[in-house]
Design a protein around this nucleic acid. Structure first.
Lengths: 184, 184
DNA sequence: GCAAAAAAACCGTCTAGACGGTACAGTAAA
DNA sequence: TTTACTGTACCGTCTAGACGGTTTTTTTGC
């Protein structure tokens, strides 16, 4: 069955993700991932034919997860104008530390950049797509760009593990909320 | 003489930096650095007793360079109110691609995070210092924080090698220019 | 409905090479 | 004599990936 294989693949990617978040990119080895996924190294390499292949799988899954989050946020926002912008900021900063897809994506990013910048392509595509959607969000281009930079800044801080003050983020989100209502 | 030694140390750090920017953190090996610096591996280890030691040296030099840039920018800005904020954005984004200290710092950052998060300390100190200086820049706290995030966002993009539209950056800078004159 | 064949999923060891770091003998200049 | 190196040989460790074999699942033939 394909479901079993998909399940195993997911387990492998979960393990890789966990190692990236908790131990850093340097400790992401095939052995470590296999062990954490309760699998042999051979089993791992059956599903992903190389470490690079595994990283690609991880990137794609992360991006898909992020897009789902964005979709949900947009869906739950009744005001069309600027709702993608708000969604982007909300996804970039999520309060619950454990299940933060943005931070996971960040950890993945670091690993990718450090080990194989060629794998950045799908991520760049995603970023371009976000920029485009921001531009078509009913805001003027400069405001859209500013919001993107703010979101990226939040990412950046989370990536470095810098504790960002939740109250401050709330202030920023509120101001954006107000300004996207008018014009920013 | 001490000048000779300092010169060699600088040459070594230049080489390390160059490898980081052009090839990525994975290719930063002692052998590669020594070769690029036209030096033997033994010679390198004479100046830096370990790879970690070399990284620390690199971080410190980068931070010093950035602070010098900030100082210069602030010095050349006649309007006291918000001039550190403007300086920060200007340093984060520099047009001339070759000599961009911000991008070099970014590459170093990645290497550090990926290989030894313990070395982040001096960088976190720097970031906190920047945040503090932004807060004492005559702007309200939320505006200051927003500007920091924008600057970090610019960093983030440069770090990923994402080509940011110079015109857009100019627009952002101009708006900040206008707003820091009034209140943002 | 069931056995045999085939394919999929997985195990665990082995190897070749890279890398950080050490040791040390020697050299050249200040 | 000290400082600033060169250059080589070497060690221990780590890691990606290859490989041959084994178990489990699915498909096929009857």
């Amino acid at each position: 069955m394909n479901a079993k294989a998909d399940d195993t693949r997911d387990k492998i990617l979960d393990a890789a993700q966990d190692i990236l978040v908790t131990q850093g990119a340097m400790h992401l080895t095939l052995d470590a991932v296999a062990q954490k996924a309760s699998l042999s190294k051979g089993g791992l390499l059956y599903h992903f034919k190389s470490k690079e292949d595994m990283m690609v799988g991880l990137i794609h899954r992360q991006i898909a997860g992020m897009n789902q989050e964005l979709k949900d946020q947009v869906f739950n926002d009744p005001e069309p104008r600027g709702r993608f912008a708000r969604a982007y900021l909300n996804v970039a900063y999520q309060k619950d530390e454990c299940e933060n897809p943005s931070q996971k994506l960040c950890s993945t990013l670091i690993a990718v950049i450090a080990n194989n910048p060629k794998l950045l392509e799908p991520i760049l595509t995603q970023i371009n797509s976000i920029q485009e959607r921001l531009q078509n969000d009913g805001l003027d281009p400069t405001s859209a760009f500013i919001i993107r930079l703010i979101g990226d800044g939040i990412w950046f801080n989370q990536m470095l593990g810098i504790p960002v003050d939740p109250d401050m983020i709330a202030n920023v989100l509120q101001r954006v909320q107000e300004e996207t209502g008018s014009c920013l």
